[in-house]
Amino acid sequence: MAFRRSIRNRRGRKIIHKDFELQLTSMMDILVIILVFLLKSYATSTNSFSSVPGMKLPISKTQELTPDSLLLIVTPEAITFDNQRVVEFVQTADSLNADQPSYAFKNEDLDEGGMRIARLYDALNHAREKAELLRTKSSARDAEGNPLPFDGVLAIEADKRVKYDTLRKIMYTAGAAQFKVFHLLAMRQDM
Protein backbone atom coordinates (compact mmCIF):
# COMPACT_ATOMS: atom_id res chain seq x y z
CA MET A 1 0.00 0.00 0.00
CA ALA A 2 2.81 2.30 0.97
CA PHE A 3 4.60 1.34 -2.23
CA ARG A 4 1.60 2.26 -4.37
CA ARG A 5 1.17 5.55 -2.60
CA SER A 6 4.79 6.54 -3.21
CA ILE A 7 4.50 5.75 -6.90
CA ARG A 8 1.40 7.87 -7.08
CA ASN A 9 3.17 10.73 -5.35
CA ARG A 10 6.13 10.55 -7.67
CA ARG A 11 3.84 10.67 -10.69
CA GLY A 12 2.01 13.57 -9.14
CA ARG A 13 5.20 15.52 -8.68
CA LYS A 14 6.08 15.27 -12.34
CA ILE A 15 2.92 16.98 -13.39
CA ILE A 16 3.49 20.64 -14.09
CA HIS A 17 0.43 22.61 -14.79
CA LYS A 18 0.47 24.77 -17.85
CA ASP A 19 -0.50 27.85 -15.94
CA PHE A 20 2.43 27.45 -13.51
CA GLU A 21 4.41 30.68 -13.04
CA LEU A 22 7.57 31.20 -11.08
CA GLN A 23 7.03 33.59 -8.18
CA LEU A 24 9.58 36.32 -8.81
CA THR A 25 8.33 38.79 -6.23
CA SER A 26 10.41 37.42 -3.38
CA MET A 27 13.50 37.30 -5.58
CA MET A 28 12.85 40.89 -6.58
CA ASP A 29 12.67 41.84 -2.90
CA ILE A 30 16.04 40.23 -2.22
CA LEU A 31 17.66 41.88 -5.23
CA VAL A 32 16.30 45.29 -4.30
CA ILE A 33 17.70 44.91 -0.77
CA ILE A 34 21.11 43.93 -2.18
CA LEU A 35 20.97 46.87 -4.58
CA VAL A 36 20.14 49.33 -1.82
CA PHE A 37 22.95 47.96 0.34
CA LEU A 38 25.44 48.24 -2.51
CA LEU A 39 24.36 51.77 -3.35
CA LYS A 40 24.67 52.74 0.31
CA SER A 41 28.17 51.37 0.68
CA TYR A 42 29.34 52.34 -2.78
CA ALA A 43 32.43 54.45 -2.41
CA THR A 44 32.87 56.87 -5.23
CA SER A 45 36.60 57.17 -5.55
CA THR A 46 38.63 58.62 -8.33
CA ASN A 47 41.69 56.52 -7.80
CA SER A 48 42.69 53.12 -9.01
CA PHE A 49 44.88 52.16 -6.08
CA SER A 50 45.10 48.54 -5.18
CA SER A 51 46.81 46.63 -2.44
CA VAL A 52 49.30 43.81 -2.62
CA PRO A 53 48.35 40.48 -1.02
CA GLY A 54 50.15 39.96 2.26
CA MET A 55 50.83 43.62 2.87
CA LYS A 56 49.51 45.05 6.12
CA LEU A 57 48.59 48.71 5.85
CA PRO A 58 48.41 50.94 8.92
CA ILE A 59 44.98 52.14 10.01
CA SER A 60 44.15 55.83 10.04
CA LYS A 61 41.22 57.85 11.36
CA THR A 62 41.65 60.38 8.55
CA GLN A 63 38.68 60.50 6.20
CA GLU A 64 40.40 62.24 3.29
CA LEU A 65 39.78 60.83 -0.16
CA THR A 66 42.78 59.72 -2.12
CA PRO A 67 43.07 61.57 -5.42
CA ASP A 68 44.56 59.68 -8.31
CA SER A 69 48.32 60.02 -8.60
CA LEU A 70 51.43 58.01 -9.26
CA LEU A 71 51.67 55.11 -6.84
CA LEU A 72 54.75 53.70 -5.16
CA ILE A 73 54.31 50.46 -3.23
CA VAL A 74 56.78 49.28 -0.60
CA THR A 75 56.37 45.56 0.00
CA PRO A 76 58.67 43.44 2.20
CA GLU A 77 60.38 42.23 -0.98
CA ALA A 78 60.72 45.28 -3.19
CA ILE A 79 59.70 48.78 -4.20
CA THR A 80 57.19 48.89 -7.03
CA PHE A 81 56.56 52.07 -8.95
CA ASP A 82 54.03 52.45 -11.74
CA ASN A 83 53.39 48.68 -11.67
CA GLN A 84 57.07 47.92 -12.22
CA ARG A 85 59.44 46.44 -9.67
CA VAL A 86 62.19 49.01 -9.41
CA VAL A 87 64.34 48.02 -6.44
CA GLU A 88 64.57 44.76 -4.52
CA PHE A 89 65.43 44.63 -0.84
CA VAL A 90 68.15 42.41 0.56
CA GLN A 91 66.54 39.20 1.75
CA THR A 92 68.24 37.42 4.63
CA ALA A 93 67.30 34.13 6.22
CA ASP A 94 66.78 35.85 9.57
CA SER A 95 64.40 38.42 8.19
CA LEU A 96 62.39 35.76 6.36
CA ASN A 97 62.16 33.51 9.40
CA ALA A 98 61.42 36.22 11.95
CA ASP A 99 58.58 37.73 9.91
CA GLN A 100 60.38 41.04 10.21
CA PRO A 101 61.56 42.10 6.75
CA SER A 102 64.90 43.90 6.64
CA TYR A 103 63.95 46.59 4.07
CA ALA A 104 67.70 46.95 3.51
CA PHE A 105 68.96 48.25 0.20
CA LYS A 106 71.87 46.82 -1.73
CA ASN A 107 74.89 49.13 -1.63
CA GLU A 108 74.95 49.47 -5.41
CA ASP A 109 71.36 50.77 -5.37
CA LEU A 110 72.26 53.80 -3.23
CA ASP A 111 74.16 56.98 -3.98
CA GLU A 112 74.52 60.51 -2.54
CA GLY A 113 75.90 59.20 0.73
CA GLY A 114 73.38 56.37 0.95
CA MET A 115 70.34 58.67 0.85
CA ARG A 116 69.21 58.42 -2.77
CA ILE A 117 67.95 55.23 -4.39
CA ALA A 118 69.44 55.43 -7.87
CA ARG A 119 67.05 53.17 -9.78
CA LEU A 120 64.03 54.69 -8.13
CA TYR A 121 65.32 58.16 -8.95
CA ASP A 122 65.60 57.19 -12.62
CA ALA A 123 62.08 55.75 -12.65
CA LEU A 124 60.60 58.81 -10.92
CA ASN A 125 62.46 61.16 -13.21
CA HIS A 126 61.19 59.27 -16.24
CA ALA A 127 57.62 59.47 -14.92
CA ARG A 128 57.98 63.21 -14.28
CA GLU A 129 59.32 63.85 -17.78
CA LYS A 130 56.45 61.83 -19.24
CA ALA A 131 53.91 63.79 -17.18
CA GLU A 132 55.46 67.10 -18.24
CA LEU A 133 55.41 66.05 -21.89
CA LEU A 134 51.74 65.13 -21.62
CA ARG A 135 51.00 68.49 -20.03
CA THR A 136 52.84 70.27 -22.83
CA LYS A 137 50.69 68.50 -25.41
CA SER A 138 47.49 69.01 -23.44
CA SER A 139 45.16 71.87 -24.30
CA ALA A 140 44.85 72.83 -20.63
CA ARG A 141 46.75 76.06 -19.99
CA ASP A 142 47.19 78.47 -17.11
CA ALA A 143 46.25 82.17 -17.19
CA GLU A 144 49.41 83.09 -19.09
CA GLY A 145 48.92 80.35 -21.68
CA ASN A 146 51.68 78.10 -20.36
CA PRO A 147 51.23 74.37 -19.83
CA LEU A 148 50.08 73.46 -16.33
CA PRO A 149 53.02 72.77 -14.01
CA PHE A 150 53.85 69.26 -12.84
CA ASP A 151 51.91 68.67 -9.61
CA GLY A 152 54.58 66.38 -8.15
CA VAL A 153 52.23 64.23 -6.07
CA LEU A 154 53.38 60.76 -5.13
CA ALA A 155 51.20 58.28 -3.25
CA ILE A 156 53.19 55.92 -1.03
CA GLU A 157 51.61 52.65 0.01
CA ALA A 158 53.80 50.85 2.51
CA ASP A 159 53.58 47.93 4.88
CA LYS A 160 53.09 49.12 8.44
CA ARG A 161 56.36 47.47 9.51
CA VAL A 162 58.45 49.62 7.17
CA LYS A 163 60.93 51.72 9.13
CA TYR A 164 61.25 55.45 8.76
CA ASP A 165 64.81 55.05 7.50
CA THR A 166 63.46 53.33 4.38
CA LEU A 167 60.62 55.80 3.98
CA ARG A 168 63.00 58.72 4.36
CA LYS A 169 65.25 57.43 1.58
CA ILE A 170 62.22 57.02 -0.66
CA MET A 171 60.91 60.51 0.07
CA TYR A 172 64.38 62.02 -0.31
CA THR A 173 64.72 60.33 -3.71
CA ALA A 174 61.27 61.53 -4.73
CA GLY A 175 62.13 65.04 -3.61
CA ALA A 176 65.27 64.93 -5.76
CA ALA A 177 63.05 63.95 -8.71
CA GLN A 178 60.86 67.02 -8.02
CA PHE A 179 57.99 65.25 -6.29
CA LYS A 180 56.93 67.74 -3.65
CA VAL A 181 53.85 66.25 -2.01
CA PHE A 182 53.54 62.79 -0.50
CA HIS A 183 50.29 60.98 0.16
CA LEU A 184 50.92 58.33 2.79
CA LEU A 185 48.21 55.75 2.26
CA ALA A 186 46.52 53.84 5.04
CA MET A 187 43.40 51.80 5.63
CA ARG A 188 40.44 53.91 6.64
CA GLN A 189 39.17 53.22 10.13
CA ASP A 190 35.40 52.85 10.24
CA MET A 191 33.98 55.58 12.42
Partner: peptide
Protein backbone atom coordinates in the same frame (compact mmCIF):
# COMPACT_ATOMS: atom_id res chain seq x y z
CA UNK B 1 23.02 46.86 -11.90
CA UNK B 2 24.16 44.65 -9.02
CA UNK B 3 26.84 43.08 -11.21
CA UNK B 4 28.05 46.50 -12.31
CA UNK B 5 28.16 47.84 -8.75
CA UNK B 6 29.99 44.81 -7.43
CA UNK B 7 32.51 44.99 -10.27
CA UNK B 8 33.27 48.67 -9.82
CA UNK B 9 33.03 48.83 -6.05
CA UNK B 10 36.15 49.75 -4.13
CA UNK B 11 36.38 47.09 -1.46
CA UNK B 12 39.69 48.55 -0.29
CA UNK B 13 38.85 51.64 1.70
CA UNK B 14 41.96 53.77 1.57
CA UNK B 15 42.67 57.12 3.06
CA UNK B 16 45.76 59.29 2.99
CA UNK B 17 47.84 61.57 5.11
CA UNK B 18 49.40 64.38 3.12
CA UNK B 19 52.88 65.61 3.83
CA UNK B 20 54.74 68.18 1.74
CA UNK B 21 58.46 68.03 1.12
Amino acid sequence: MISFLMYTMAFLSLTMVESPL
